[in-house]
Write a protein that binds this DNA or RNA. Structure first.
Lengths: 138, 138
DNA sequence: TCTTGATGCTCTAGTGACTAGAGGCCCTAC
DNA sequence: GTAGGGCCTCTAGTCACTAGAGCATCAAGA
């Protein structure tokens, strides 16, 4: 049996976050000891590990709820898990593409003023004027 | 003179968002007509355009506040604007790097189950087990 | 057994950057 | 004059936490 603090250390999820997950129904309510403190078993540890890993992979808590609801089921559920994972992948790829456009735009803007201070703040001008931009970020 | 709705259409910033920007002191309070409705001039349009573009580039409202406070000043302020832009660039590059790790991890997980349903939900297993991961995402 | 400091509990409120809705006022075109 | 759209303020909700208050409990050492 683990205390909430031990669980926190083991998984890298902060204590208030664990309580928050419980509050929103993502983690099942654990048992309590005589002093009303939470006591977790291996299943609690596994569930939190699953959540942590999925969060690190960028899944929303809503997605994770769906994925956890599916666990242990068969057939269609697997297709659903796959669908969620693929949609998350598409989402991530899209974010990468957008960020790459931003990076090149920011690079362009940064090069306008190379640290000196001779007649610059073209940085501010560039920020104010989208029409100067090459790509279609946003 | 523009109404808030016209400003919204012209800049692509939603009406409640414009009011929000005003509320937090990012946009100066505009004049009002006899019926207490906001009326903006070209300066308001320019300021909102600046904010919009900077937001699209991923700057936080806090950053934008700093950048706008600097505008029109000299010397050090330019260096400061440059510093903010560069730090934003570093930030964006870092996010790209992390997302690329996530994408490759998600690709790996997605390939575990190619839509079929024969003994799969290795997707769920993979999500639960970080030790299977190649890279050091998170 | 007592004490001390860490850890735990609940509850409320705050973060950033909006978004939604209620309930009412104003403006413009017909 | 009226209809409808736009505008006003205010409150509350979103997501995924984070911080703090004020108190209870636990484990280790004296």
């Amino acid at each position: 049996m683990f205390s909430i603090g031990q669980l926190s250390k083991a998984t890298g999820v902060k204590v208030p976050t664990i309580r928050y997950y419980e509050e929103i129904g993502l983690l099942p309510q654990p048992g309590r000891n005589a002093g009303n403190q939470r006591r977790y078993g291996q299943d609690g540890m596994d569930a939190l590990g699953f959540i942590k890993h999925a969060r690190d992979l960028g899944f929303s808590l809503e997605d994770i709820k769906a994925l956890m609801g599916l666990d242990g089921h068969l057939g269609d559920d697997c297709a659903e898990a796959d669908r969620i994972a693929r949609s998350q992948l598409a989402n991530v790829r899209d974010r990468i593409r957008k960020l790459q456009q931003l990076a090149s735009e920011l690079e362009r803007i940064s090069h306008l003023c190379d640290g000196g201070n001779g007649g610059c703040c073209k940085v501010l001008t560039a920020l104010g004027d989208h029409s100067q931009c090459a790509g279609d970020h946003s």
